[in-house]
């Protein structure tokens, strides 16, 4: 392996229903189709050196997924970006590629900003639930994991949680920045949009855990499934508390 390349990619539209395993297979095949000189592990059954950091759950879209590819021949990040993007199915879209300079990418991914679209929800009800959630010190939720039902706090990891609507307007909360709107998503009927910054802790708190928290504290139950998108993940800015570009140290 002569070089490591870090890739930011998006999981959009219908492709949000891919599982992490589906994505790893799709990436491996795309790498082969694109003739990218991926390095392989040594040993009995060699594996391509591709590692993934913090994959979004099945059913959740993302504008900020990250993987790292080890290559056996130096590659230009810009051409690799184009080749990999062409080779991946539409909906798995490569957004950025940098050469790794130092450190672990996974360590830089301190938190995520999530957008949760809730079609058919009353803005006032959402605002009230959010207020109650934020004013709680702890919100114990349950999630079914492979090891059975697990109880944990969904409040502590939440840095911010705001309510907006489809037009970018805010309901009792700071105004949303319109250009952060999920790319590639079609405009649906008007709906409430939650936006949250969640720190990556153990156990991981996911947007659906926060939604369960809202349900527990305020009986808040959206009528149809939420559409969740990860907008960003990276080191959390000390001032704003929001994720910043994790590739910054590699760009120097």
């Amino acid at each position: 392996m002569v070089q490591r390349l870090r890739v930011r990619y998006a999981k959009r539209g219908r492709l949000r229903f891919t599982s992490h395993r589906d994505i790893t297979r799709a990436v491996e095949r795309a790498v082969r189709r694109a003739d990218i000189p991926v390095a392989y592990s040594a040993g009995f059954s060699p594996h391509p050196k591709i590692s993934y950091a913090g994959a979004a759950p099945t059913g959740v879209a993302s504008e900020a997924e990250y993987l790292e590819i080890g290559v056996s021949r130096a590659c230009d990040p810009l051409s690799l970006r184009a080749e990999l993007d062409t080779s991946l199915p539409s909906g798995l879209d490569v957004l950025d590629v940098v050469e790794a300079r130092s450190g672990s990418l996974a360590d830089r991914l301190e938190g995520s900003m999530w957008e949760v679209r809730l079609p058919g929800v009353e803005p006032d009800a959402a605002a009230k639930a959010v207020e109650q959630f934020l004013s709680s010190e702890r919100v114990e939720v349950e999630r079914l994991t492979k090891k059975g039902i697990r109880r944990f706090d969904a409040r502590g990891a939440v840095g911010s949680l705001t309510v907006g609507n489809d037009m970018g307007g805010a309901v009792g909360a700071p105004v949303m920045i319109d250009d952060l709107r999920t790319a590639g998503q079609e405009l649906g009927p008007p709906c409430v949009i939650l936006r949250m910054v969640v720190r990556h802790e153990i156990p991981a708190v996911r947007p659906d855990d926060v939604l369960m928290g809202l349900r527990l504290v305020a009986g808040f139950a959206p009528p149809s499934p939420p559409e969740v998108t990860r907008l960003a993940q990276g080191p959390l800015d000390a001032m704003t508390g929001e994720p910043t570009d994790p590739f910054e140290p590699d760009r120097a």
């Binding site: 219908r14 492709l15 229903f17 095949r29 099945t58 059913g59 199915p89 909906g91 499934p225």
Partner: peptide, 19 residues
């Protein structure tokens, strides 16, 4: 179909779009 997908096992199988 889309609103049903989050509620089923392995939703990707109903989505199509294979290479």
């Amino acid at each position: 179909l889309e609103p049903l997908l989050p509620k089923v096992q392995k939703p990707i199988q109903y989505v199509g779009g294979e290479l």
